[in-house]
Simulated scan of single mutants.
Amino acid sequence: MEKQRGKVLVTPRSLSRDGHPGLQLLVDEGFEVLMPWPGKQPNEGQLLEVLPACVAYLAGVEPIGERVLAACPELKVISRNGVGMDNVDLAAAERLGIKVVGTPGANSQGVAELALALLFDGMRAVSYSDLHMKEGQWSRRKGFEVTGKTLGIIGCGNIGQRLARMAIGVGMRVLAYDVYKDANMEKTPGFSYTELNHVLSGSDMISLHCPPGKKPLLDAQALSTMRKGVVIVNTARDALVDHAAMLEALESGQVTTYATDVYDKEPPELDALLKHEKVVMTPHIGGFTEESVERATIAAVQNILQAIG
C-alpha cells in the first residue's frame, strides 16, 4: 500500500460543507483530506486539536495566530482559497518556516459583480423596499440613476479594475485611488486616478477594495468630507469602517446606504450599525459563486502540491 504523504486540513465552509472535486487531486497524490467541521468556521481550540498532525492547511477566513502555528511542527504550507492574508500571523509563519500562499484573482469577478449589485441596491433602495413591503408597508424611497454619477474606488487592483470597467459600461465615471497605477487603466475613457481625498469628496458612490490599516479608513472625519447622500459599499474588510461614525452618518443623511459583505467575525454580532434599516448585509458571498469557488479551489490545491512537491 502506498504510504500516505500526510494530512491536509480543509476549513473553508463552502468546501467542508459541500466538498469539491478539486480536493480529489490531493487524495490522488497520496494525502489524507480532513474536514472535521462541515460548514462551520473552526475556533482556535479546534484548530489546536487537529492542525498539529497536518502537513498542509487549505484555510478559510478563520484567525490563524502564533499559538496555533507554533503547535504545528509538521505544517509546511497554508493555502488560502482567496487573496486576503490578514487572518494569518504572517510574521510567526515566516519565523516558523511555514509558507503562506493565496489565490489572487480567483474570486475577483465574483466580488466585483457583488459590489456592483450592492451599489445598484443602494441607489434604488431595493433591500429597503423589500423589507418594508414584507412588513405590509408601502414605503417608497426616491432613488438615483447611476448614469452620469461618479463612482469612487479605493483600492484599484484586480477587483477594483473589474468593477471600474463594469461601472463605466453602464454610464458612470470612475475616480480611483491606489498606491500602484495601472497603465492600461489610465488609458480607459471615463476612468482616472486621483488622490484619496478627491475620491472621498468627489464621488456619489464609494466602493472599498483595499486592505485595512492600523485605524479605520472611513472614520468621522473622512465621512464628513463626502458628498451628502453617498452610497458606500464594503466587500473588502470590516476594519476599514468605524461603526459608530458610520451609524451617525446614516442617521444624519450624510450616507444614504452602507452595504457590506464583510465582518469582524462570522457570523457577526449585530450591533446598532448592522441592525440599521439603511444597512444592507450579505453573508460574505463576494467570492461565493460557482466560478469563483472553482477557480479558487483548484488554485489553492495546486499551491499545496507545489509547496510540498
Rank of each mutant, 00 (worst) to 15 (best):
N81F: 08
G286T: 03
I232G: 00
P63D: 09
E29A: 13
I64D: 00
V179W: 07
Q24G: 11
G160N: 07
K228P: 15
L114G: 01
G190N: 06
M205E: 14
N87F: 02
A299L: 12
M246I: 07
S207E: 03
G6L: 04
M166T: 02
P268M: 12
H20S: 07
N158F: 01
G157Q: 02
D28S: 14
M85A: 15
Y263D: 06
H20P: 02
S139K: 10
E186Q: 15
Y258I: 07
Y193A: 05
D238M: 11
E135S: 08
P216I: 10
A307C: 08
L96D: 08
G202A: 06
V77Q: 02
Q46A: 11
S16W: 00
E266I: 05
E195R: 08
R17A: 15
S127Q: 11
Q302H: 14
T289A: 08
R13L: 10
H276Y: 07
D182A: 14
R227H: 13
K187Y: 04
E186M: 14
G102P: 06
I78R: 00
V27D: 08
V170S: 01
A176T: 04
D178N: 14
W37E: 05
P42N: 11
K187W: 03
F120G: 01
E2V: 09
E94S: 09
A93G: 11
D219G: 14
H198L: 08
G45V: 05
P216S: 09
K149Q: 14
L163N: 09
V101D: 04
E290R: 11
P63F: 07
V50A: 11
S108Q: 07
G229S: 15
A115H: 00
P52W: 09
V10T: 01
E74Q: 12
T194C: 15
F120S: 03
W138V: 08
D28G: 15
Y180H: 12
A71L: 05
G22F: 14
E66W: 06
H276K: 11
G45I: 03
L305C: 05
N107M: 13
L175C: 01
D121M: 02
G229A: 10
M185K: 05
R124D: 03
M172W: 09
R141F: 13
R95F: 07
Q254E: 13
S192Y: 07
Q137D: 09
E66T: 12
I232V: 15
L15S: 01
R162K: 15
K278E: 01
K40W: 07
Y57K: 00
N184Q: 15
G157R: 04
G143R: 03
M123A: 15
E291Q: 15
P36Q: 10
N234G: 06
V50I: 13
V50D: 12
D28P: 09
E62F: 02
C210F: 02
L69Q: 12
T260C: 12
A92G: 10
K275R: 15
A70C: 11
V301A: 04
Q254M: 13
K149D: 08
V68C: 09
S224V: 07
G82T: 05
L274D: 00
A300G: 07
S79H: 00
A125N: 14
G97L: 06
Q306L: 06
Y193T: 03
I168M: 14
K228E: 15
M185Y: 01
M172G: 03
L223H: 04
G45F: 11
E2K: 10
A53H: 12
G143I: 01
A53L: 07
L34G: 03
Y180P: 00
L118W: 04
R5N: 13
L9A: 07
P36K: 10
L163Y: 02
R173H: 11
